[in-house]
């Protein structure tokens, strides 16, 4: 067993943010999510937090652990020494609902605008290659929280939506390439990225949005050149 002091942001819109510290003992083989659940079950049933799967596939339990964007289910208790204070705060750049919960609508709106699919193996049509399946992205929003540009430019598409566009352009299957390129090529699309790289560092799922944004830029440049060459020939 290991005893930790969980220092958790409490409050919500209209209520001032305060820190409340809970002392909790949990098995050191468990994760921070288990500790938070134990606090909720045994000490404070009013604590707001989101979770579902416990194994990094639902993408619901993203918070900031000591300032850094993490999934609570992937943050081992063993990382912290006995008696340590661990600060838990909600994600940045999303509207705050209360305690550890944010409204992920901005991310979902972007994914909807892209018409992001869930590409499953059984959906692969004849002739299409398997490729890197973009269910790699669990839409947890950690990258959106870590990116400073998402916090200042309300229209910036952001790391994971851009990575999603890259994935679709890689394997369009009848998608409207034109409109995907219009989204990615917007001044608030792929070109708005300043390579702050925090998205890559916090992604719990190896998506590498920065690399995807670079891919999109190369794609847009080459496509622009092809179109220019085509126009000249005509």
């Amino acid at each position: 067993m290991r005893t930790l002091n969980l220092r958790i942001v409490r409050g919500g819109p209209g209520r001032p943010a305060t820190y409340q510290t809970y002392q909790v003992s949990v098995d050191e083989h468990l994760n921070i999510l288990d500790a938070v659940q134990k606090v909720w079950a045994t000490q404070d049933p009013t604590l707001l937090f989101r979770h579902a799967c416990h194994h990094a596939s639902c993408g619901l339990c993203g918070v900031r652990v000591n300032g850094r964007e993490r999934l609570m289910c992937l943050t081992p208790i063993a990382e912290f020494p006995e008696g340590a204070t661990v600060t838990l705060e909600p994600l940045r750049n999303f509207p705050w609902v209360g305690d550890l919960v944010v409204d992920v609508k901005p991310l979902m709106d972007r994914m909807a605008a892209i018409q992001a699919p869930y590409v499953r193996k059984d959906e692969l049509t004849a002739g299409s290659e398997e490729g890197t399946r973009f269910e790699d992205c669990i839409e947890c929003g950690l990258c959106m929280s870590a990116c400073p540009v998402v916090g200042s430019d309300s229209a910036y598409l952001g790391p994971s939506p851009l990575a999603m566009i890259k994935r679709l352009l890689e394997e369009p299957r009848g998608r409207d390439i034109q409109s995907l390129c219009a989204l990615a090529g917007d001044a608030h699309g792929a070109w708005r990225c300043h390579s702050v790289m925090e998205c890559v560092e916090v992604c719990p799922s190896n998506v590498d949005p920065s690399q995807a944004i670079g891919w999109l830029r190369r794609y847009l440049i080459l496509r622009g050149r092809r179109q220019l060459a085509g126009a000249e020939r005509r």
Binding site: S152, D153, Y156, H188, H194
Partner: peptide
């Protein structure tokens, strides 16, 4: 311009 665009201005303002 890049810094100001980062503040999310409208196409007209741009």
């Amino acid at each position: 311009r890049a810094i100001i665009l980062d503040l999310g201005i409208s196409p007209a303002a741009d």
